[in-house]
């Protein structure tokens, strides 16, 4: 009930991000979601792709430092208040959100959120109890 997120180390230097996205595009890798986090001297690009294995291989071949993390991809109705409900469910159960970012899919009337929590198992449990559905890796392709 999780998806694999690829995190990539990027030096904070002009052109580094462009180099990174070039590597993906040259290898025909489509990003489904992406977020950037930055410290003073470096950044971390976090991406969701359909074919994780292929993307990681390509990145490693190009000397990128890569880390794979299991994160939650939560589907919710594309309407006001939907995200609040999800966050409230997690908060009420003491599940701490480390970071999150949105992504869109082709599926109509649905919005998606990538959520990174420390305890995936517990998060999935409370979400499901509240009728909220985390998506699994295989489903990503169809979204």
């Amino acid at each position: 009930m999780t998806v694999k997120q690829i995190s990539v180390f990027l030096e904070n230097k002009p052109g580094r991000l462009a180099e990174f996205t070039d590597v993906l595009s040259e290898n025909n890798i489509n990003m489904r979601a992406m977020s950037l986090a930055e410290a003073s001297d470096f950044g971390i690009a976090r991406v969701i792709v359909d074919d994780v294995y292929n993307a990681v291989t390509v990145l490693k071949d190009n000397d990128y430092i890569v880390s794979i993390t299991k994160v939650l991809a939560v589907e919710m109705p594309d309407e006001p208040g939907a995200l609040s409900r999800v966050i409230k469910v997690l908060g009420d159960s003491d599940v701490n959100v480390e970071y999150m970012y949105a992504f869109t899919a082709r599926k109509k009337d649905c919005a998606y959120m990538i959520i990174r929590v420390a305890d995936n198992k517990k998060a999935i449990e409370v979400l499901q109890q509240n009728g909220i559905r985390p998506v699994c890796q295989d489903e990503l392709v169809e979204l």
């Binding site: 997120q5 995190s7 180390f9 410290a39 470096f42 971390i44 976090r46 890569v66 880390s67 993390t69």
Partner: peptide, 14 residues
């Protein structure tokens, strides 16, 4: 940077 040092968490790397 090395794989061992790296993770998805900015605070952990910092």
């Amino acid at each position: 940077m090395t794989s061992e040092m790296f993770s998805d968490s900015l605070s952990a790397v910092s």
